[in-house]
Amino acid sequence: MKKERVINTQRALVAALFLGAVTFGYAQEAAAAQETVANATAQVQTSQQNPAIDALKKKIEANPNDTESLVNLATAYQDAKDWKNALGTWNKISTLLPDWAPSYYSEGYVYQNMKDDANAKTAYEKYIAAVKPEELEASKKNLAYAHLFVAYQLKESNKEQAKQHIAKSLEYDPSNQDALNLSKFLNQ
């Protein structure tokens, strides 16, 4: 009888622990979901209630080809972490100024924050191709990062191309530890 009571107590304890773990797991998932919804709502509210964004949107409505205001709007969206609107604005800028390299770099940055590595890689490749020789000196840090990102994306599928990109990255920023680590990995 005492042995049955111990077994029943153990079963009850295991059931309580299991139920508690399930409840705890559900609470964690619910909290994460609530946080995601809160972040999305905050992004929408930030961009909708941001006076700077509102002013820039009005300015652009009056002159849709005002690239300076478009750049400021895209940057304001990025600051508000409103990636969708930032990307749409950078795309407009790229259409208006197809030879302006920084718009492609910014598109890559936004895609990266949206966890869309394939499009980020494409945008960074466009940036690398669009940088003019006279802009090279001022663009070294961004070029180093763009080459690093592309190399990282290619490390499994095309090791030789990845090596070329990482060599360029290190040419522009020889002290970048991430690039040095990737280079070491690629040359093993």
Rank of each mutant, 00 (worst) to 15 (best):
L143A: 10
E135Q: 14
K163L: 12
T122D: 08
A129V: 00
E160H: 04
E156K: 09
L143Y: 09
P133H: 06
L154D: 12
A118F: 10
T122F: 03
Q164G: 09
A130L: 07
K159G: 05
K126M: 02
A151W: 07
Y109M: 11
L148C: 07
K132V: 05
Y145R: 03
Y109L: 09
E160F: 06
A120M: 03
Q112W: 12
K155F: 00
H147C: 00
F149Q: 03
H147V: 01
A138F: 13
E137Y: 08
K115T: 08
E134N: 09
E135L: 04
M114S: 08
Q161K: 14
N142T: 10
L143E: 14
K115V: 11
L136E: 13
A151F: 08
E156R: 02
V131F: 01
H147Q: 04
K163T: 11
M114G: 11
E125C: 02
K155M: 08
L136T: 12
Y127D: 02
H165R: 08
Q161R: 14
N119T: 01
H147G: 00
A144S: 15
K155H: 10
K163P: 05
A138E: 15
K121L: 13
L148R: 13
Y111M: 04
D116P: 07
Y124Q: 01
L143P: 05
L154V: 08
L148F: 15
K141R: 13
K132G: 01
V110Q: 04
A120S: 01
Q112S: 15
N119C: 00
A138T: 14
N113E: 15
A120K: 03
N142I: 11
A162I: 07
A138Q: 14
K132A: 12
H165K: 05
K126H: 05
K140D: 14
S157L: 02
Q153F: 06
Q164R: 11
E160L: 08
A130I: 04
N119Q: 11
K140M: 13
M114D: 14
Q153C: 06
F149S: 09
I128L: 11
E160I: 03
Y124H: 00
K141G: 11
A123E: 10
A123G: 07
T122R: 07
A118D: 14
E156D: 15
L136D: 10
L148N: 09
A118M: 11
A162R: 08
P133V: 06
Y111I: 01
A146P: 01
Q161W: 03
D116E: 14
Y124C: 02
L143W: 05
D116A: 11
H147K: 02
Y109R: 07
K159C: 04
K159R: 14
Y109E: 12
Q112C: 06
K140I: 13
K163F: 05
N113H: 15
E134L: 07
A129C: 01
N158P: 05
H147P: 02
F149V: 01
H165F: 06
Y109T: 04
E160P: 03
E160D: 15
